[in-house]
Design a protein around this nucleic acid. Sequence first.
DNA 1: TATCAATATATTGTTGACAATTTCTATGAC
DNA 2: GTCATAGAAATTGTCAACAATATATTGATA
Lengths: 225, 225
Amino acid sequence: MDSQVHSKTSTLADDVFDQLRTAIVKGELAPGTKVNEPQLSKQYGISRGPLREAIRRLEGCKLVEIKPNIGAKVISLNKVQVIEIYEIRESLEGLACQLAAVNATAEDCNKLRDLLTHHEQQIQSENGRLYYQKEGDLDFHYLIVQLSANTRLFDILCGELYHLLRLYRCQTSSAPSRPVQAFKEHHQIVDALEARDGELAELLMRRHIASARQTLISQLSETNQ
Amino acid sequence: MDSQVHSKTSTLADDVFDQLRTAIVKGELAPGTKVNEPQLSKQYGISRGPLREAIRRLEGCKLVEIKPNIGAKVISLNKVQVIEIYEIRESLEGLACQLAAVNATAEDCNKLRDLLTHHEQQIQSENGRLYYQKEGDLDFHYLIVQLSANTRLFDILCGELYHLLRLYRCQTSSAPSRPVQAFKEHHQIVDALEARDGELAELLMRRHIASARQTLISQLSETNQ
DNA sequence: TATCAATATATTGTTGACAATTTCTATGAC
DNA sequence: GTCATAGAAATTGTCAACAATATATTGATA
C-alpha cells in the first residue's frame, strides 16, 4: 500500500525553485535583488548544486537574469515592459473569452458570478478594497482563462504574465486604479459568456484591458520609471 | 585593449544550453528522447554539474520535462497542442500586424518584399520548395513580429512558439501544406502594412493563420496522432 | 514458457572541495 | 581628498565522489 513511502516525489532543486519563484512573485525577493548563492544555500539548508539548478530554471522562466561570473538578479519591469504585457493580455484574453464562450457551462458562469459577488462584499470594507485590488482582479481573469481550455494559453497568461504583473504591483506598490469601473465591466463579460456571445465577450474583455492600459500610459507621462 | 582576454563571456552551462536547444528545435534530439546525463556529459566533454544546469534551464523553457529520479525527456507535441499554438498565433500575430503597421518604415516594407521575392525564386526549384516550406514561412512571420517592436511579444512568438512549431514539423516530417496560397496572402499583408492599415493587416494575418489551422484540423480527423 | 524475487548495473540527486573571477579593502602617490 | 593599484575576501564556475533511486539481468519457481 505505502510502497512509495521511501521514494521522494520532488528534488531539492524543485522545492527551492517553487519557494524562490513564490518569493519573487510576492515581492519578498525584490526586483533587482542579487541572488547570493552562499546565503540562500544556508537559508534553505541545501548545497549550492541544487540551488544553482533552481536558479537556472528561473532563468529559463525569465524571472532572473544571469550574467557569467557575476550572478543572478531578480528581473525588474519598467512601465514600457508592463504596457507590452498589457498589449499581449488584451489580445490573449480576448481569445480566452472567445473560447470560454464556447466551453463555459451554466455552472461555470455561476462560479464567475459568485466570485464577483464575493469581491463585491470584500470591496465594501476598506481593507477588503485592498484585497480586491491586489488579487481579486486577477482571480476573475484567471478563471476565464481556465474556461478557455487552451492549456498553453493558460500557461502563458496564468503561469507567466500574471506573475509578472503581481511582481510589478509589488515593485511599485500600485493597485489597479479603477476597481469600481472594472467590477461593472466584469459583470458585462459574464453576461456575454452566459449568452454564448463569444464575439461580444472578446470585445468587452479587450476594451476592459485597454482601459487599464490607458490608465497606465497616462501614469507613465507623469512619473518616469 | 584586450583586457578582457582572460575572462570568459559564457559558462559551460550556457554553451551546452544553446547546443541542446538547437538540437531539440532542429529535431536532432527527437521528441520523447530521454536525456542521458552521463552520455551527454561525455559528448560535450563537461561534467554533469553545468550539464544539469543547462537541462534545468531547458525545463524552465518547457523544452524538456523532468521527473524526479527518472530524468529529462524532450517534449513532444500532439496535434491538439499544435492547434492550441495556432489559436495563440492567430491572436498574437494579429497584434503584431497592428503594431507593425504603426512602426514599419518604407524600408522595412521593402525588406519584407525582398524576402518574399527571394522565397518566390526558391519556390521555383523543387528543392527550393522544400526550403520555403520548412523555414521560409516562419521567416516572414519572424520579421513582422520584429517590426511590432514589442519585445515580449517577440520573445513569446519567436523565442518559444516558432521553436515548437519547427519541432513539430520535424517530429511529423510535415511541411506547411498550402505554400502557394500562403505566398499570396503574405503579399496582401505587406500591402496592408504599406498602406498603414493596421486593422486590415491584422484581419489578413488572422485569416492567414486560421486557414493553416483549419488545414491542421482536417488532418487531425484523418490520422490521430 | 511466464512470472516473480534478488541481485547487479546504470542513472539521478546531492555534497564538498577546488579553481577562476569578481568585488571589496587598504595602502600609497599625487 | 581623490585616484590608482595591490592584496584580501567573497562569489561564481567546475569537478569528482558518494548516496539514493531506478532499471536491467539473472535465476529460481510454478
